[in-house]
Amino acid sequence: MTSIPQYMTEKHRECDDIFTEAESAVAAENWPLAQQQWQAFANELALHLEAEESILFPQFEQATGMTSGPTYVMRSEHEQMRALVADLEKALAEQDKGEFLGLSETLMVLMQQHNMKEEMMLYPMTQQNIPDADKVAEQLQSHCQS
């Protein structure tokens, strides 16, 4: 049985992989490949964020009573990521390599420190506090594979 931290951390790594492939394609100015990889990344990221916001965070908030703490910060950072993704899509559509790489470096930094907070603290906390953590892990898996 995969735990919440294990599964969600694996998903972070998968997102990183597709993200770096898209970024490399832009650096090589291979625009069709960049478009394809970027779409795959954007979809994967959207599913991951949704899974957290609609399944994991509400369960954690219910179990701990903490609604304005870690999950509030995480939700706000998700919004910031979505805004950056929109900017990146614009740069990609305009085939603006410099702008894209500046923004992608920024998204990478934001994602990495966001992931670190989740992997270091939030995910272990959810596993420990949510009563039926294994069932929630299954729900997350089925959402991300939809």
Partner: peptide, 30 residues
């Protein structure tokens, strides 16, 4: 990284402020 992260934290309270955030290469260019 620090400059961006600190500014980004301020935008958590005011999402509209995101429009002003420079990206990493605007702080120090390649």
């Amino acid at each position: 990284f620090l400059s961006y992260t600190h500014l980004q934290q301020r935008c958590l309270m005011n999402f509209e402020a995101m429009q002003y955030l420079p990206h990493m290469h605007q702080f120090i260019s390649k």
